[in-house]
Design a binder for these strands. Structure first.
Lengths: 193, 193
DNA sequence: GCATATACGGAGCATTGTTCCGTTTAACAA
DNA sequence: TTGTTAAACGGAACAATGCTCCGTATATGC
């Protein structure tokens, strides 16, 4: 109840450095496909003890989430930029393709999604919100411009897009994903049906 | 090279019974959300030893796959039936909705997909083929009838659909998924764009 | 009944996630 | 600089779980 507000020390520099090291190592490992990498190994590669890893990330999921969140945040930040550069529908299309590109380039997102969405769901809560806001603004603009039907739920598009990331295996995958983007957009236009 | 073909004994009845018991228990557990259930626990619930479980299913994934495959096979079998009962596009729509229903009712598929698609990929190989064949026949029919554009890749639709299963968390999920089905179909029609 | 292929069960090993706590060190004040 | 202390470190030890191994039990076919 005592609402004390002590002057807190500035966070220790080594702490921040180690945290970043860990994130970097984890991200690299995931990207290369080592999704199941033991945490000891992550710690070792980052040059820290296992205890340090656990202080920064209370459990495995927390680590994965941190990597995942950073990537998705960056993706979300692209939305307003695209919105400023293109007309509504094209901005959305560009963003969706960007999403696909991210998945293609860094397999971080896909594997991470696999392990986590089924799990706590708490993870998805935050990052989901961020992404949701991103698509939402883009879709809203398209609807406001009269290009999209008013009953289009941005989340629907996000769902479909996320699905693509699951099947990121087979060849010709990327092209297929972009084709899907077009199908989704065409299916959402006000001119259709 | 010796192409011997011995007369083999008929499989022991207790073996088959146990196998079915294990599948049943696993399926139930997965459906209830206990995706991470320890294998010992599965064995115990099925009333068998852990050794027995491992003889039937060499590893965890094999067990999940077995459950998963059975479910998806059933789903695939519905395709020809629907095709016989409805005109092409409606048959496809009905099947896609069925897919969504399956996921909604039995959470088996979604968690299983999550854990596995990212993993070996060998699993997906079989069941994927079965599903692929199912959508393929339905989409081909729609294209042949001139209802769908010729460049529609059945796999694209499957990908999007699978994605839905990932986000099976939030409320209003099912309605949203069905809406997505409509978007996909609209976006694939030959009249559009 | 008898022989034997087949299946069973569970102890035990290996790996990996997680906790705990004594030691070290960066930040701040004097 | 130096002393104090909160913050961070490292890794031994514990716990949970996947998986193996092998002696025992029991259908199956004669």
């Amino acid at each position: 109840m005592t609402d004390v507000k002590k002057t807190r020390r500035r966070p220790r520099s080594d702490g921040q450095r180690n945290r970043e090291q860990l994130l970097e190592v984890a991200k690299t490992a995931f990207t290369v496909g080592e999704v199941d990498i033991p945490l000891d190994e992550v710690a070792r590669r980052a040059g820290v003890g296992i205890g340090t890893l656990y202080r920064h990330f209370p459990n495995r999921d927390a680590l994965i989430e941190a990597v995942y969140r950073a990537e998705l945040d960056r993706l979300a930040e692209a939305a307003p930029v695209l919105a400023a550069q293109h007309p509504p529908v094209e901005a959305l299309r560009a963003w969706m393709r960007l999403f696909v590109d991210y998945i293609a380039a860094k397999q971080v997102i896909a594997p991470a999604l696999n392990g986590l969405v089924g799990g706590t769901g708490a993870l998805y809560a935050h990052s989901g919100d961020v992404l949701k806001a991103a698509v939402n603004s883009l879709v809203s603009a398209a609807i406001a411009a009269g290009e999209f039907r008013a009953d289009i739920d941005p989340l629907d598009l996000l769902r479909a897009l996320a699905g693509v990331s699951n099947f990121s295996a087979g060849p010709g995958w990327e092209g297929s994903a972009k084709r899907l983007v077009d199908i989704l957009i065409t299916g959402s236009r006000s001119s259709a049906s």
